[in-house]
Lab assay of single mutants.
Amino acid sequence: MSIQHFRVALIPFFAAFCLPVFAHPETLVKVKDAEDQLGARVGYIELDLNSGKILESFRPEERFPMMSTFKVLLCGAVLSRVDAGQEQLGRRIHYSQNDLVEYSPVTEKHLTDGMTVRELCSAAITMSDNTAANLLLTTIGGPKELTAFLHNMGDHVTRLDRWEPELNEAIPNDERDTTMPAAMATTLRKLLTGELLTLASRQQLIDWMEADKVAGPLLRSALPAGWFIADKSGAGERGSRGIIAALGPDGKPSRIVVIYTTGSQATMDERNRQIAEIGASLIKHW
């Protein structure tokens, strides 16, 4: 067993022997301040990774656009098919120029040779490549099948209805392509620590998230040296922004954090800054 596999296998073990965790309302004060600064709703939840206990939450059962955070769930569904012998990570998928959609920095470079399922998941999570996500959605049967996968996990809230990039439209009061912070946090925890996926697939999923290259201005910008984070960000229309993450000190994750916002007129930089400040408060009061 590799060191990384050992780390993920012992996530519940280490967490069980940690000192009790206590909620700190100071972080919620910052979440509410972010709402004021952005002029928009902000949803927040913080779960203990081992027990699933909610440590703090704000608007945990209000719907927010998922945006690209759905790509972690998508690759979880792909990995479940791999575990069941219905898919192979090494299978190569070929596609054409007509398949390319807006923001496809990886797939646009491989029109000639195609990409493997493993490479597509890596591109979808680490670079948020939209064509990679659409190609992977095709392998599982489309958005409705991802929703069905989530329902089978016990998540009857999260739903995907459309493809990239239309799913980022974020129309107010439109339930399409949305989740709730509580539902997303619980589902992410199941994917990373539950028995739904094999140990190898859980490790692969967290490795992809740990290698995320496009979430630097968010929670990662607030992390002290030595902290662990595996995350996936999302951005959408109407001032929408979000991030889902597993993080913790001492090089291992111990909490799940989900943050979503929508309806702001603020710039992307300002949305990023507010999420980073929430992260800084979380870490300060850990």
Rank of each mutant, 00 (worst) to 15 (best):
T131W: 02
A84V: 12
E26V: 10
T262Q: 07
Q265P: 11
L192R: 01
D113A: 10
N134E: 02
D33L: 12
F22Y: 10
G52N: 08
Q97R: 15
G76E: 01
E46S: 13
T69R: 00
Y95G: 03
I259T: 03
P105D: 04
R81M: 08
T107L: 08
D33I: 14
H156W: 11
T126R: 07
F17P: 05
G226C: 09
V29I: 15
P12S: 12
T178G: 03
E35G: 05
K213E: 10
T187A: 09
K252Y: 12
D48A: 08
E56H: 08
N130K: 00
L150P: 01
L10G: 08
L160V: 14
A77D: 09
A245E: 00
K232H: 00
V82N: 06
L247Y: 03
T147R: 11
L135F: 06
R41E: 07
F149D: 05
M1L: 07
S57F: 09
P20Y: 03
P143R: 03
V106Q: 12
K32D: 05
D99H: 08
M184V: 09
K284Q: 13
F228M: 10
P181H: 00
T138H: 14
S221T: 13
A211H: 14
D177R: 01
M180L: 09
A230E: 01
Q274L: 15
K53E: 12
G39R: 14
G141E: 06
T178I: 04
R118Y: 15
G43D: 00
E270V: 13
G43K: 00
G242K: 00
F228K: 08
L120W: 00
D48M: 06
G226T: 12
E108W: 08
A245Q: 01
N168G: 11
T186N: 13
F70S: 08
D33K: 15
R41K: 15
T261E: 06
E164Y: 04
R271A: 10
A77G: 08
L135N: 03
K30W: 05
H24G: 14
N50G: 14
L74H: 00
L10N: 06
G248V: 01
R162F: 03
L223C: 13
I283D: 01
F13T: 12
L19Y: 15
L73I: 15
D48N: 08
F149E: 07
I45R: 03
Y103E: 03
L247E: 02
I278S: 00
L137S: 05
